[in-house]
Design a protein around this nucleic acid. Structure first.
Length: 452
RNA sequence: GGAGAGUUGGCCGAGUGGUCGAAGGCGCACGCCUGGAAAGUGUGUAUACGCCAAAAGCGUAUCGAGGGUUCGAAUCCCUCACUCUCCGCCA
């Protein structure tokens, strides 16, 4: 059954392998934008940018021109300045003190002008950087146009028919109450709404899932990491949480640290400011972490139980890859995540995000949804993305190519998997009239095969 | 939290106002030597931005980060971050 599904999946892999990879331009840097203005504009339109917003592209190019001419002026002035300083030194050595002093006064006066030039250059560079931070990643050509999640493309459904609920099927929050698996009320007392207190077999199931996911990732060649759960501003900026998702993170203002919204942030930042060897690629990392998300403003029907919480556990997989390999790797990662869901025996589908739903930093994203049988609802449990060189550019993560030139790596990541919702789906899909069965792969991790 | 000592290239390490992007060593790459290797020996070996159609070349910046003093800063002054040692507190 598992093999069969994997084979079916191969068809989809081959399809997306045919994506054409433009090897010459793969950075989202100012140089890229300058030479690909049309493509960038098209991509922004795909992300539903209006004409007013699109003006930023032109502004970017103009600002860069200004920056360049400012640098040229500054460099020339500095060069002259340096030469004069050397001259003064020579004059002192040869005993021509009067001449030296004269020149000193002259140079002293020129300092003001140079300072102004430096300031001008700095301002323009900053201005450019601020503008660049506002440009999202170029959407891959396969990204469908669309405004919201309704326009996402379902590219695969794991099963022909959806399972039907047993008579009297309960949503997971009712099951949790019945079997004392987790307690939202007490968590709300301790912390606030949107937090969870797991207890007994409920807590053990949670731990089992984490261990299972980490072991699977190790088997697939990912290096296990345990990163810090708070990051500094620079790290948050490098992976693109700042400035785009400012309000999504918990911010510890006193120390200016952010609670991580995903392990992607600390794990990817391991490689910030590094130049890696091409032969070391791909680098494969995995980590479990709690994920903290404020989810400000998202209230409504879909927040019940574990559907949307402020703290949930997740195992993340991250890869750093050669640009020409990244889409092949994206397919492998998608296939890996699919394998996990199949092992857990949950009904699922794979969705390709449309331009309106695509994250700021991603070029192409596949979401995994599992079917929650009692809620009769699809729950997003994984998101696998290729960021191409977008994060690398911010991370300054590069590798040396055959010619010894430094080029930006590509980064990819995916949830494998997000616990809270997978947990909910397991409870609902595995409920029987006499208790909840434990999926076979988890039994060795749990130490029990039923919750009664 | 208090006191002190540090932070220099891939690594080690010299350098307390000038010719220092930085001695020396290790490593790495290429060559010579060798039957082959080691040893020996020679050369090369940072990053970013800019000028140039591009390469070559050239310019500028970078010695933890940011400011300042100076004609000139790795070197002097200030602020911050990190590392180490001691004290305090603590799982």
């Amino acid at each position: 059954m598992v093999i069969n599904l994997v084979q079916k999946y191969a068809f989809f892999c081959i399809q997306s392998l045919s994506l054409n990879f433009n090897s010459k331009y793969f950075m989202l840097q100012i140089k890229y934008i300058e030479s690909n203005k049309e493509l960038v504009t098209q991509s922004l339109k795909k992300r539903n940018w209006g004409d007013t917003q699109l003006k930023i592209v032109q502004k970017l190019i103009e600002t860069n021109e200004q920056r360049k001419s400012a640098q040229l002026k500054m460099d020339q002035a500095l060069s002259e300045h340096k030469k004069k300083a050397e001259l003064i030194q020579g004059l002192y050595k040869s005993g021509e003190v009067t001449k030296a002093n004269e020149l000193r006064t002259e140079v002293q006066q020129a300092k003001e002008t140079i300072k102004a030039m430096e300031l001008d250059f700095k301002h323009r560079t900053q201005q450019l950087e601020e503008l660049l931070l506002q440009i999202p990643n170029i959407a891959h050509q396969d990204v469908p146009t669309g405004k919201s999640e309704e326009d996402n493309q379902i590219i695969k459904t794991g099963q022909d028919t959806l399972p039907s609920p047993i008579p009297g099927a309960k949503p997971h929050w009712e099951l949790a109450e019945a079997y004392q698996l987790f307690d939202l009320k007490t968590a709300a007392k301790i912390t606030g709404s949107g937090f969870v207190l797991f207890t007994g077999k409920g807590a053990k199931l949670q731990r089992a899932l984490i261990s299972f996911f980490l072991d699977e990732a190790s088997k697939a060649g990912y290096l296990e990491c345990m990163p810090p759960y708070m990051v500094n501003e620079q790290s948050a900026r490098a992976t693109g949480q700042l400035p785009d998702k400012e309000g999504q993170m918990y911010h510890i203002t006193e120390d200016n640290l952010f609670m991580i919204p995903t392990a992607e942030v600390p794990v990817t930042n391991i490689y910030r400011d590094l130049i890696v060897k091409a032969e070391d690629l791909p680098i494969k990392l995995t980590a479990h972490s709690p994920c903290f998300r404020r989810e400000a403003g998202s209230y409504g029907a879909d927040v019940k139980g574990l559907n949307r919480v402020h703290q949930f556990d997740k195992v993340e997989i991250v890869q750093i890859a050669l640009p020409e390999k990244s889409y092949e790797i994206l397919d492998k990662m998608v296939s890996y995540v699919e394998g996990l869901i199949i092992k857990l025996g949950l009904p699922y589908r794979i969705v390709r995000l449309c331009g309106g739903d695509l994250g700021f930093t991603a070029a192409l994203t596949y979401d995994f949804e599992v079917y929650s049988v009692a809620q009769k609802k699809w729950l997003e449990v994984s998101s696998v993305s290729n960021f191409e060189s977008y994060q690398s550019n911010r991370l300054k993560l590069r590798y040396k190519d055959e010619k010894g030139k430094n080029r930006l790596c590509h980064t990819l990541n995916g949830s494998a998997l997000a616990l809270a919702r997978i947990y909910a789906a397991i409870l609902e899909n595995y409920q029987t009239e006499s208790g909840i069965k434990i999926p076979e792969v988890l039994v060795p991790y749990c130490g029990f095969d039923r919750i009664t």
